[in-house]
């Protein structure tokens, strides 16, 4: 598969602050890369260098094999970009704005019309086409900006927080749109909503303080989680001790903790040894109610915790 986005040792300094400190990554055709990190980690700055908005202080960025600094116009033609905050010209109508973008992208009048119509259909904007963008709701504004980015059907799509500020339905729509386009494009999506990574990304990179601290699939990242694959259950307060004892007898269970007590029930968490699957005997026992538990579930862990763990620990510089 062709590598369409390539960053090597990108560096950017703003005054005293090293915003991006040597980021290298590759995104191939067909991949959707989730770009994660706390605010100020350097996500947006990295994207700005990839798209040619900012000149890197060191390192280089290539879009579809074209160096962004050497041939900015050619590289930008291969690229659709949704900047942070989805800026659009508010005094234009959605149609006027998209037509402007189509013209500047070099399409003639008929082709521009066709492209605008196609992008409008994909982003479901037809009801607001003749309205000024500044009068639109946040969700529509964002979709106008997304339409702008995908209008020329670029090989490379870079989107800075594409679902920020959208309601759940709109989020779902945008994610589906991204998933639908992903087969023949290389896409980078930055977000701090981790469910988004699970929903659309084939790979995730976490950056913190300008460096990549984790790079892998969403599952890879989850495996690093302390509570991944643990069994959580609620048991009546009187039975807690007995159940704990019963669980501890399993060789597969590393430890059992009491997490909390509420409404006369105790919440227990049993962790299997690293990576081990939950033994089927245990499942059978629970089902047969020999271990008396109300509400049992296996925790997958969630990316939020990996995220917190990786980005708050000082030693969080190991690569996955």
């Amino acid at each position: 598969m062709a590598v369409l986005i390539e960053a090597s040792d990108l560096e950017k300094r703003f005054g005293e602050i090293l915003a991006v400190d040597g980021i290298s990554l590759e995104v191939k055709r067909g991949e959707v890369l989730g770009f994660l990190g706390p605010n100020g980690a350097g996500k947006s700055t990295t994207m700005k260098m990839l798209t040619g908005f900012l000149e890197p202080d060191a390192g280089s960025a290539r879009i579809a094999g074209i160096d962004v600094s050497d041939e900015p116009k050619r590289a930008k033609r291969q690229l659709g970009y949704l900047p942070e905050g989805a800026p659009c010209y508010g005094d234009m109508t959605a149609r006027g704005f998209l037509t402007f973008i189509a013209e500047i992208r070099g399409f003639d009048r008929d082709e521009a019309k066709r492209r605008v119509a196609a992008a409008v259909e994909k982003t479901q904007l037809s009801s607001v086409l003749e309205q000024k963008i500044e009068t639109l709701s946040k969700g529509f504004k964002r979709r106008v900006a997304i339409a702008q980015a995908i209008l020329h059907d670029p090989q490379v799509l870079i989107m800075d927080e594409p679902t920020d500020g959208l309601d759940p339905n709109q989020k779902h729509q945008v994610r589906r749109l991204i998933a639908d386009m992903s087969a023949d494009k290389a896409i980078i999506v930055s977000t701090h909503i981790l469910e988004e990574v699970e929903a659309v990304c084939s790979r995730a990179v976490i950056i913190n303080r300008g460096r990549i601290v984790a790079d892998g699939t969403a599952e890879d990242l989850m495996r690093r989680l302390p509570y991944h694959n643990t069994i959580a259950m609620h048991v009546p307060a009187g039975r807690a001790e007995a159940v704990t004892k019963a669980l501890t007898e399993f060789a597969a269970i590393a430890r059992v903790e009491t997490v909390g007590t509420a409404n006369g029930r105790v919440r227990l968490r049993a962790s299997p040894h690293a990576g081990a699957p939950i033994p089927s005997e245990l499942a059978a026992l629970i089902r047969s109610r020999l271990i008396e538990a109300e509400e049992v579930h296996v925790e997958r862990g969630n990316l939020d915790e990996v995220f917190r763990q990786i980005t708050t620990s000082d030693a969080g510089t190991s690569h996955a």
Binding site: G52, K76, Y81, I104, R105, Q148
Partner: peptide
Amino acid sequence: ELLMTLPIS
């Protein structure tokens, strides 16, 4: 940011 990432000089 939009303007300067369009394919124009």
